[in-house]
């Protein structure tokens, strides 16, 4: 997976980048399955390999497919990224161990969720739709808003693009 990430960073042809990110999200989904997040993996596979690939391609075929050569030296961003990474790794030593059942995350509300008072075997669905119904309503609204935003941005007006191009 790391290889594909590095390849995504280095590659300059955007078509190849999109293909690589599709492969990356398949691998990501497999990792998520290994971490028991079945629903998340399904979503990630559906989104990463299906929809966002198509969307990126759709945007790309309206734009240029080759990235320009960078004009700046990459050292400053690299330094910023690496130092952020070092800081985060330093911080990560304070986190609980991987798979530790006594970690705080397993102590609070989750036992109540797992009691399954809704009688739906898939706890993720139960929590998503019932216990956290407001979150999901908000999520649906965000999707709706994004759709509306895209419609507003990409709706075809007569002579719209030419005018702006002349001004520029």
């Amino acid at each position: 997976m790391a290889i594909s990430v590095v390849a995504i960073v280095v590659t300059r042809n955007l078509f190849s980048v999109i293909v690589l990110s599709g492969a990356y999200s398949f691998l990501m989904a497999t990792v998520l399955v290994a971490l028991d997040a079945v629903d998340v993996a399904m979503t990630e596979a559906a989104v990463g390999a299906g929809v966002s690939t198509v969307l990126l391609l759709g945007a790309l075929h309206l734009c240029k497919s080759e990235e320009a050569k960078p004009v700046h030296k990459p050292w400053l961003p690299l330094a910023v990224s690496v130092s952020t990474g070092a800081l985060l790794i330093y911080g990560a030593w304070g986190l609980p161990d991987f798979g530790d059942p006594d970690a705080p995350i397993h102590q609070n509300v989750v036992p109540r969720y797992m009691e399954n008072e809704v009688d739906v075997p898939n706890v993720v669905t139960a929590v998503l739709a019932s216990f956290r119904g407001y979150d999901t309503l908000g999520e649906t609204t965000v999707v709706f808003t994004a759709g509306a935003g895209v419609i507003a941005l990409l709706r075809r007006r007569k002579k719209g693009p030419e005018k702006t191009r002349e001004k520029a």
């Binding site: 079945v38 299906g50 898939n122 993720v124």
Partner: peptide, 17 residues
């Protein structure tokens, strides 16, 4: 969606796909 992996969001995406 109640019994296995899946649910509304995944179904919507797959149908759209």
């Amino acid at each position: 969606g109640d019994f296995g992996p899946g649910g509304g969001f995944q179904a919507g995406v797959i149908a759209a796909a």
